[in-house]
Design a protein around this nucleic acid. Structure first.
Lengths: 159, 159
DNA sequence: TATTGTTATACTCTATAACTATA
DNA sequence: TATAGTTATAGAGTATAACAATA
C-alpha cells in the first residue's frame, strides 16, 4: 500500500485557529453548506433558492418582506432569487394588501419543494448523525446562545 | 411598560429551519464573523487579512502555498490579500526554494499582529463565555466530527 | 516536467442608496 | 407619509483556467 490515506498530509504549521471556536464554527458551516450544495445540485437549485422554496412552501401567502425578516436577508437581495424561481414557473403571485405580493408555490413548485424538503432532511440527518440521540436540541440551544453572546448587548444587529 | 422588549417581534411564520443544525450553524457562523469584523475594524483590517497575519506571525517563513493549504484557500485568492498587506509594509519577503517566497512580518506587521492577536483572543473569549468551563474542547471536537460527517466518505474535498 | 506564484475572470452573497408604487 | 418592492451598484469571498518562473 503506497497510497497516502492520510486525509491531511499538511506541513508542520502551527495553526493559531485550531483552538478557536469562531474559526471552527466557520469551517464547519462552510463544510456543511458545501455538502448541502452538492445534495441540491441534482435538483438544479442553489441553497439560497431552495431556502426560499422551503419558506414559501411552509407558509403559502408570505410576502417578500416576511421572507426577508425570517431569513435576515436584505429585501433587495431576494429579487434576483425570486425572479429566477418565477422564470422556472415555480411560484404563483397573488395581489395582497398595499404593494405586497402573496407568494405561493405553483404545481411545479410543489413538486420541486417535495424533493428539496427531502434533500434538506437527508442532509440534516447526515450532519447530525454523530450527535447522541436527544442532544441535538441542546446543541442548537448552545448555538443560539453563542449568537446572543456574539451580537447582543452592544452595537450589532441580532442576526 | 409599553416598550417592546422582545428581540424578535417577527410575524407568525413557520420557520422550517429552526430545528435544522445546518442552518443554525450557518446563522451562528455569520453572527460570529460579523462580530469579529467589528472587533477588527478599529485596526483597519478585515478578518481574511487578519487571519493571514495570524498565520504568518505564528509561522515566520511560510510560503503562499503553505498558507493556502492551512486555510483551505485557493492560492490565487491569497494574492490580492497579500498584496494589500505588503502595500501597508506589514510583510517581509525573502527568496526561498524554487519560486517560493518566505513570508514574515515586518516590524510594523509585528505591531499590528499584537493587536490582532488580542482582538482574536477577546473575540473568542466572548463567544465562548456561555460554554461551561472545560467543555470548549468537546464542542470543538463535535464540530470537527460534523465536518467529517458532512464531507468525507463521499465526493467532497476535506474542507 | 512538477511546483510555485500570478493574472484574469466569473459567480455568489451581502449591503446600501435611490427610486417607484400603493395605501 | 409609511410600507413594499425594485434597480443599480459596490464590495467581499470563492472557484477555475491559463500563464510565467524556477528548480
Amino acid at each position: 500500500m503506497t497510497v497516502n490515506d492520510d486525509p491531511k498530509p499538511e506541513p508542520i504549521l502551527s495553526d493559531p485557529f485550531e483552538a478557536m471556536l469562531g474559526f471552527q464554527l466557520r469551517r464547519t458551516s462552510v463544510a456543511v453548506m458545501g455538502k448541502l450544495t452538492a445534495e441540491l445540485e441534482p435538483l438544479g437549485i442553489l441553497p439560497s433558492e431552495a431556502s426560499l422554496l422551503m419558506l414559501i412552501g411552509a407558509n403559502p401567502g408570505v410576502t417578500q418582506s416576511d421572507i426577508a425578516r425570517a431569513l435576515r436577508a436584505q429585501p433587495a437581495n431576494l429579487v434576483p432569487l425570486l425572479t429566477k424561481l418565477s422564470r422556472r414557473k415555480l411560484l404563483d403571485r397573488a395581489p395582497a394588501k398595499g404593494r405586497a405580493v402573496a407568494l405561493s408555490l405553483s404545481e411545479q413548485g410543489g413538486v420541486l419543494y417535495a424533493g428539496v424538503r427531502e434533500a434538506f432532511a437527508r442532509h440534516d440527518a447526515r450532519i447530525t448523525r454523530s450527535i447522541p440521540d436527544g442532544q441535538k436540541a441542546q446543541v442548537i440551544a448552545m448555538l443560539r446562545q453563542i449568537v446572543i453572546d456574539a451580537c447582543c448587548a452592544d452595537g450589532m444587529p441580532a442576526t
